[in-house]
Design a protein around this nucleic acid. Structure first.
Lengths: 155, 155
DNA sequence: CCTTTTTGTTAACTCTGGCTAACATTATAA
DNA sequence: TTATAATGTTAGCCAGAGTTAACAAAAAGG
């Protein structure tokens, strides 16, 4: 199991890759409001966990495992964010910040239950929806997730 | 602002006081699954923050400020627990564990919104309910909170 | 192609919050 | 009341995750 902090780095890397096509130390540091040495450490932690490939001064590439984990983390974030924003009506910026924190603390089963609940409440789901954070099954939420992704990319 | 870890100690102390009438290092360590030296450190952190009074080998007494904060922390825990258990239908033991983690990460405003939501959904509230974690206003939730308190004391 | 700027790395430090081992104090109970 | 058990403290260690300062490497652009 990697730490919460490492998950955050991984998530940021995945998003940067989608946004910029590459992942750079400086960009990570900017997004995460931390210093480059901190990023450097994080990179080697993630490398040791087999979640990315890296050599000094080289390019950061998430492994397949790393990419899958990143997706899962983002998925969890999305669900929590959706709940906070659209169910509790928390203001957008706050919802983002809170979602970040909450999603790192809760278990997969809680996320799955929350996802199902959010779908029901927001009328996104059909009765067959069996959301599972480790898979990608649910059409209606996939649609919603894509919208969310766009929002987040504008950060 | 005290750390999440310190909050957890404070909460445990408050509960022990209610349960046993006193607060002892060994009991805290048992409840929190940690060692006595860790508790000792935590005590002095909380003392430095003005949340309890303590002298070596003496008795631990929460200050008024400490007691209020403890109540607030427990309040937050209760709301999250209630949501997980009665809204998401998460199994009791899991709900407790998750609530513990989540409650330490989220802001007061989120807790307040969650509280209002939970009240509505569970039909506990009236329209005038204006839950505020820093105060104690809502009859229906107070009632529910008392039930919760009993559950938790049986841990 | 050489200089400057940007980017990335390393070393050494901090702080938090755990731990063990060893010790001190207090309570119990023979 | 004194030996033993329980309780609490201290010292010193560790790991995680951050920092600054100084340096190395790579990229950019005259």
């Amino acid at each position: 199991m990697i730490s919460k902090a490492s998950e955050e780095y991984l998530k940021t890397m995945y998003i940067l890759k989608k946004q910029n096509g590459n992942i750079r130390v400086t960009d990570i540091a900017k997004k995460m409001n931390c210093t480059k040495p901190s990023v450097n450490k994080a990179i080697y932690n993630l490398k040791d966990s087999g979640l990315l490939n890296y050599e000094s001064y080289g390019t950061i590439e998430l492994t397949e495992e790393g990419e899958n984990l990143a997706k899962k983390i983002i998925e969890a974030y999305d669900i929590v964010y959706l709940f906070l924003k659209d169910v509790l009506n928390i203001e957008d910026e706050d919802a983002k910040k809170e979602a970040e924190k909450i999603k790192s603390t809760i278990s997969d089963t809680t996320i799955n239950k929350l996802a199902k609940y959010v779908h029901e409440v927001l009328g996104l789901s059909n009765l067959n929806c069996n959301y599972d954070i480790n898979q990608e099954k649910c059409r209606s939420c996939t649609k919603r997730k894509i919208e969310l992704r766009k929002d987040n990319n504008n950060e």
